[in-house]
């Protein structure tokens, strides 16, 4: 549990660096905006990242409740699933956390116990990535479903209700 304590202590720096690494996936001006605009309604992307990443870090340290993880990971992935990212780019930020942590606790890692614990911890990060992948695919499926139904749902269903269309039986 040594690692857990260290990570808890360094949590805010780690989360900040993690956030920065996600911000870097956007253009420079956008990254500045994501970091500086603190109002979550003026900046929903930055807002869901800052609340989400911190909560995810907590989950990684304390125990992995899938429901909690999904509730914070979903808004982040849901956004990235429609932005200009390939699937790998949309989810790569999760693996970035490994790097961020290794850099942040480079000194402590010399101790074998901590290094061992970190290997286990990193498996949890992998798990997070798998969950992200599930969410990503779900979001994309939703987009295709919405696309397919777009016209049908609105106009077609109104006409059908009114018996103004007939279908081949």
């Amino acid at each position: 549990m040594k690692l857990g304590n260290i990570l808890s202590q360094k949590k805010s720096t780690i989360v900040k660096k993690w956030f920065d690494s996600v911000a870097k996936t956007y253009a420079e001006d956008t990254a500045k905006f994501l970091k500086n605009q603190a109002d979550p309604f003026a900046n929903p992307v930055g807002g869901s990242l800052s609340t989400g990443l911190e909560a995810l870090m907590d989950e990684l340290i304390q125990g992995m409740h899938r429901e909690t993880i999904v509730s914070f990971l979903d808004p982040i992935i849901r956004i990235r699933a429609v932005q200009a990212f390939t699937p790998s780019k949309a989810t790569a930020f999760i693996f970035k956390l490994k790097q961020v942590i290794r850099q942040s606790i480079a000194g402590e890692l010399k101790e074998k116990e901590i290094a061992d614990e970190l290997l286990t911890f990193e498996i949890k990060i992998d798990e997070l990535a798998l969950i992200a992948f599930d969410i990503y695919v779900e979001c994309r499926e939703k987009i295709y479903e919405l696309q397919a139904n777009e016209m049908k749902n609105r106009t077609y269903s109104a006409f059908k209700r009114a018996n103004l269309v007939s279908e081949i039986e």
Partner: peptide, 22 residues
């Protein structure tokens, strides 16, 4: 408001949806 530009619409509508979610 077309079907083929749904990603654009979802992104553009995010700030509105985010406030509704709240």
């Amino acid at each position: 408001n077309a079907g083929e530009n749904l990603e654009l619409r979802m992104m553009g509508g995010l700030p509105r949806a985010n406030a509704v979610k709240h």
